[in-house]
């Protein structure tokens, strides 16, 4: 497999995953705001923070209004992380790797891209948005399904898996980071307590983790247990540990992978050994930073081993 093709397939995985996660996060955020009392409203700023895109946002918008943020994240072609840009990038990649991926995948991605490009503008309003985001999510899931079921699980497929897993792990840490910084602390006034749960629930919902969490935890939603689930659970596909395990599982299919193995193991250990009861009270942000650095190192190691020859 050519290095350039491997690089492309890796990013294809990342872009599709990014489009899906962005759709989910926007959807859940809108619902969360509806549930919170006015005095703890934190508006739409955190959404831009999740994607680390504040600078890019301020270049073109002044106000963090719902309309601006939603446009920025969904259909702003100048925002490289918008759903439209992610799908567009994935599509450009597929053009150059058409010989590795079946025509059907190309057709579905084409469809999805045109849906977002042509109908996105009309779907920014609150009433249309949910259905629109639902279509984006369904569309990306259809792609995963086709890839997983119809494509040979060859080395190209492994690179795609590394891309999706790393993107998901990264996104999970971002959601944890931003959501928790806005959380109502345990020392807050009594009247706000009920809303604490809603917020943790929204963290789970952003990652479609709520139902799986309930089945797994069978206790009321609490900060430390949510963190444990999203960081350390070995069975939930969007947890950080699951993503790192998946990457580790691809390595036996690939050549010369000692350096990657080492960074994956180091990051896994960091996540595994974390004292979550303590982190939920303080130091979570710093901890997430450390995990993100670990994930970035995995990316570097993969790039060095396969793409930059």
């Amino acid at each position: 497999m050519l290095s350039r093709v491997a690089d492309n397939l890796y990013w294809f995985g990342r872009y599709i995953q990014r489009a899906e996660n962005t759709a989910r996060v926007v959807n859940v955020h809108a619902n969360l705001l509806l549930d919170l009392p006015r005095k703890v409203q934190f508006g739409w700023t955190p959404l831009v923070d999740i994607f680390g895109a504040e600078a890019s946002f301020r270049e073109r918008y002044t106000e963090f209004s719902e309309a601006n943020v939603v446009r920025f994240l969904l259909i702003d072609a100048q925002n490289q992380g918008s759903i439209l840009s992610s799908l567009n990038a994935a599509r450009e990649i597929l053009r150059t790797t058409r010989d590795h991926i079946q025509r059907e995948v190309w057709e579905k991605l084409n469809d999805l891209h045109y849906t977002v490009k042509e109908r996105g503008e009309a779907a920014l309003s609150r009433s249309k948005r949910q259905e629109f985001l639902g279509r984006v999510i369904d569309g990306t899931q259809l792609l995963y399904g086709m890839l997983a079921c119809n494509m040979s699980h060859d080395v190209g497929f492994q690179f795609m898996r590394i891309g999706t897993s790393l993107e998901q792990a990264d996104m999970t840490t971002r959601i944890i980071d931003v959501r928790s910084s806005n959380l109502i602390r345990s020392g807050a006034a009594d009247e706000l307590r009920p809303f604490q749960n809603i917020q943790w629930m929204s963290v789970l919902r952003s990652l479609t983790a709520y139902q799986m969490y309930r089945r797994h935890a069978r206790i009321r939603v609490s900060g430390a247990s949510v963190l444990r689930f999203l960081l350390q659970n070995r069975e939930f596909p969007r947890s950080v540990t699951f993503g790192l395990n998946t990457i580790a599982a691809t390595l036996p299919h690939l050549p010369q992978n000692r350096a990657i193995e080492r960074t994956v193991d180091r990051t896994r250990a960091l996540v595994h050994d974390a004292n979550l009861e303590q982190l939920v009270e303080s130091g979570l942000h710093e901890f997430v930073d450390e995990v993100q650095i670990g994930l970035a190192q995995v990316h570097e190691a993969v790039s060095n081993a396969y793409f930059r020859l």
């Binding site: 497999m1 350039r4 491997a6 080395v155 050549p255 010369q256 020859l309």
Partner: peptide, 28 residues
């Protein structure tokens, strides 16, 4: 695709000091 051969671009190829053409792959 039909022939089952690699589709390469110029940047995928290098010519070594031995005058042999190589393509950059994940295996080297």
């Amino acid at each position: 695709q039909q022939m089952g051969i690699e589709l390469v671009e110029g940047s995928d190829l290098t010519v070594g000091d031995d005058d042999v053409v190589y393509m950059r792959t994940i295996y080297g």
